[in-house]
Design a protein around this nucleic acid. Structure first.
Lengths: 336, 336
DNA sequence: CTGTTAGCGCCTTCAT
DNA sequence: ATGAAGGCGCTAACAG
């Protein structure tokens, strides 16, 4: 691997000039620049990024902490992140944490050992270890979807989950539904509270009874949807409409409802959340909330890069627009 | 950010001793080691990985080149990669190339600028630019699924696509099918040739006519499945069974077949390839070839790490086992 | 516009 | 077992 010195020798200039020719071409005369470029081509020289990083203190890399890489919704966010990062000359390090604090600690710690410049977190946990917490004060970090629970305030890119669930609830009520159930994802999270709050607020306004028995689940997965339905079907009072807190859950739920010999939406209406690609192609196509996932990823990059560059952030909370996508998994309530 | 020097001062030792205490504890007396550990804790010292990388020449990072991050199958491979890498103390840099040579060049070039130690490529293209090609000789690189087309031989982790498609073909023939169609993915690839070869070899053995008119598609996507079906439905001779070259295509195809008022498998049987999670939950559940995606990712890491460590590779081609998963999208041919 | 000179933070001989 | 010193490859003043 040839170094800057080889190029110097070939071009007959100093290392500084070579460095400048690359980073600040306007500071070098055209003639010498050409000489240098030729020398670079000849030698097959590639600047050692590590060496420059150690000087500049910047790695041009951010790490993304994902609780679950199998979730297609996260994938779309990551895709947005990757693209935006690339456009800004940044690379993306992938940190699949599986919600495991030890892994979160490890990946988050990278910012302290100069391995990355910033963190995008797709979860609400504070990812640093107790040991590192004190150092985490000024760390460029932004969360997407979920607010990070900590004393330090980090910016967040999120959806108005409360409003989205209100929209969903109103939609179902307009079809005459009165008996609702929820198959939730991660329970201990702001998202959960916001979404549930949105639903119950509408039900309260409409004087529709709803109690916690009808909340099942606890994980964003297809299997959770299946299990959730089975639990609900064993209940005395069965729902005519089910809120699933993501599309995977809804996919599992619909599959299981059909297994029970019931029709969607004939017997039970189902709504999802996220609008992943496949949701438009299942049978019946899913009514759900569209989240602008890849935009959210792009925004997150924007914000974390601003933090890295120490620019001032105008707002520490970016609310993205949702969209209720009505497809065919919702319909008139039975006997109404 | 505190450096090794702060720790020296606090512990009253030299930088060399601190370095040794961390990397080679046995070379340091227990007493001084304890002093140093305490000093590290006090100062919140984190070794600067960059600085050590520049000395050792290793980054403990590999880059994964993905042509399409939206493909759930790739995601599973990446998940396997990430886990295996993590277990070996490596990080994974994500390179979404979108099949764009310029992006491939950029990401592949990272190995030349000391940004990463190796490359895992999920495509068959030679990812280096012409300029860099000469330097690419000794680069640790492995491909998954597809063999890299180049003079230099790189190891590959792949499935026996030929055999898998033979199995699929035999399965359909056992249901009495005679009129077949293919909705292909990326046409210009070894995978395509192997799969098609598997199918046609069986058809030839069984004296079943098949011609190229019945091959449509050209992209691994749900939309390609929809379009493919529309083209096939406009043909004079319609197929009773369709090979889709991945599950996304199959999902689009099934959706579109139903739109045409036809039944799967009643009117047309459909098979997919990959066995992504959702394939078991669509209606009807998809008959497909299961690929051990996450195993393939793990294997890829194993191989690339061996290359990085300059260990000898026993074989430069690892063939993984497939599995025919019979679900409900295949059945008896109409009128048979 | 270009060269000289210090380092960046760490690792690694070479002495002691 | 420890310290001193040089250098990894590059950048950033400071001169000229």
């Amino acid at each position: 691997m040839s170094t800057i010195k080889k190029v110097c020798q070939l071009a007959g200039v100093s290392t500084a000039t070579v460095s400048r020719a690359l980073k600040n071409p306007s500071m070098v005369s055209e003639k010498t620049r050409e000489k240098i470029l030729k020398a670079i081509a000849e030698s097959g020289y590639r600047p050692n990024v590590l060496a420059s990083s150690i000087k500049t203190g910047k790695t041009n890399t951010i790490v993304v902490l994902v609780p679950n890489l199998s979730n297609p919704f996260f994938l779309k966010i990551i895709q947005g992140i990757e693209q935006a990062a690339q456009e800004s000359g940044y690379s993306v390090l992938l940190g699949d944490t599986q919600g495991d604090p030890a892994r979160e600690n490890e990946y988050a710690g990278m910012v302290l050992s100069n391995r990355v410049d910033g963190i995008i977190h797709l979860d609400h946990s504070f990812p640093f270890s107790d040991n590192d917490a004190a150092l985490a004060e000024a760390v460029p970090m932004v969360s997407v979807c979920e607010r990070i629970v900590s004393d330090i305030k980090y910016p967040v890119i999120e959806l108005d989950n409360y409003a989205a669930c209100r929209a969903l609830a109103k939609h179902l009520i307009s079809y005459g539904h009165q008996k609702f159930a929820v198959i939730a994802g991660q329970i201990d999270s702001q998202i959960h509270r916001d979404r549930l709050g949105g639903i119950t607020s509408v039900l309260a306004e409409e004087n529709i009874a709803f109690n916690d028995d009808m909340i099942v689940g606890g994980e964003y997965s297809i299997e959770a949807g299946e299990k959730g339905v089975n639990i609900l079907m064993s209940r005395h009072e069965k729902p005519t409409a089910i809120f699933c807190f993501n599309d995977d859950i809804a996919i599992g739920a619909i599959h299981e409802i059909k297994k029970h010999g019931l029709k969607v939406p004939g017997d039970i209406s189902v709504v999802g959340f996220d609008d992943i690609k496949v949701s438009g192609y299942i049978d019946p196509p899913l009514t759900t909330i569209h989240q602008p996932a890849s935009e959210m990823g792009r925004k997150a990059v924007e914000v974390v890069l601003k933090q890295i560059r120490k620019e001032v952030l105008k707002k520490d909370r970016e609310i993205m627009q949702f969209q209720l996508v009505e497809r065919e998994s919702t319909g008139l309530a039975k006997n109404s």
